[in-house]
């Protein structure tokens, strides 16, 4: 098994979850209805908790730093999250659409990892799957509500979809060594995951009255997996570490 590629695979998965969890958490007390404050906060807890568990695998199995150090005290360029999760929340339209696009991707990824021969990852995938089912259910329900709501809500959701589509494709940017991991049956290729993802979301978008993009004609926003990020990640990382950097050697 190409261990370093596997480590990178776990790291990027964890980074996506941590940063999206951070963005979700920003909705707490700011949602359009109280029920959505609660929902986004709940999903934030799941995402952040999932990230922690994955960092912990890197820590215990591969000798990486403690999850707190790894998650919160790295330089911005060492994060390998996709740029989709870094983008500011924007309005509820953008946040909801991102949540929809991301969670369907996470769902197919987890399904592919359940049979991963690296057991710690397979075990976590089984555990996370149940949580992500709820996230997907939440996203689907709201995409339908707002796509089929008013002219305004429909237009806003379509705009959000069009804006986020190139970033969403960036979720499937391959990491170095992926080919080897795929050949060894450790992971499923990003290309295959993307195909499954499209097959899952297109009908839901259509039912919601939204026009699914012509995915093949879109240029994905990539670079995140190699540490190239949008302007939004550096301030986010600084914010996450604001208290920890006062003294990195102590308990808080």
């Amino acid at each position: 098994m190409n261990t370093s590629a596997l480590e990178n695979y776990i790291l990027k998965t964890a980074d996506d979850l941590l940063v999206l969890g951070h963005r979700h958490s920003e909705w707490t007390a700011f949602g359009p209805v109280i029920e959505e404050d609660i929902a986004f906060c709940s999903m934030a807890q799941d995402k952040v908790g999932q990230a922690q568990a994955l960092y912990n695998v890197l820590h215990t199995t591969f000798g990486y730093d403690h999850p707190d150090t790894l998650a919160f005290l790295r330089e911005e360029g060492k994060y390998t999250c996709a740029q989709l999760v870094e983008l500011p929340n924007g309005g509820y339209d953008t946040s909801l659409m991102r949540h929809f696009l991301f969670d369907h991707a996470e769902r197919v990824r987890l399904a592919s990892l359940v049979s991963c021969p690296f057991e710690p990852l397979a075990n976590l995938a089984k555990k996370f799957k149940g949580e992500v089912e709820y996230h997907v259910l939440h996203a689907n329900t709201w995409i339908d509500q707002l796509g089929n709501g008013t002219e305004v809500s429909k237009a806003r959701m379509q705009t959000a979809l069009d804006e986020l589509a190139p970033y969403a494709l960036g979720l499937f940017e391959a990491i170095e060594g992926e080919q080897e991991l795929v050949e060894q049956g450790v992971v499923v290729s990003e290309q295959d995951l993307q195909a499954q993802w499209q097959a899952a979301i297109d009908p839901i978008l259509e039912k919601a009255g939204l026009a699914a993009p012509d995915w093949s004609s879109i240029t994905p926003v990539v670079g995140g997996r190699k540490g190239y990020h949008s302007e939004y990640l550096a301030p986010l990382v600084k914010e996450m570490s604001e208290v920890l950097v006062i003294d990195t050697e102590v308990e808080w």
Binding site: F30, G31, P32, V33, E36, G91, Y92, Q145, L146, G149, T150, V152, S153, R156
Partner: peptide, 9 residues
């Protein structure tokens, strides 16, 4: 900011 969401609901 959330008005359009509630109106759609």
């Amino acid at each position: 900011d959330g008005r359009w969401v509630r109106e759609a609901l």
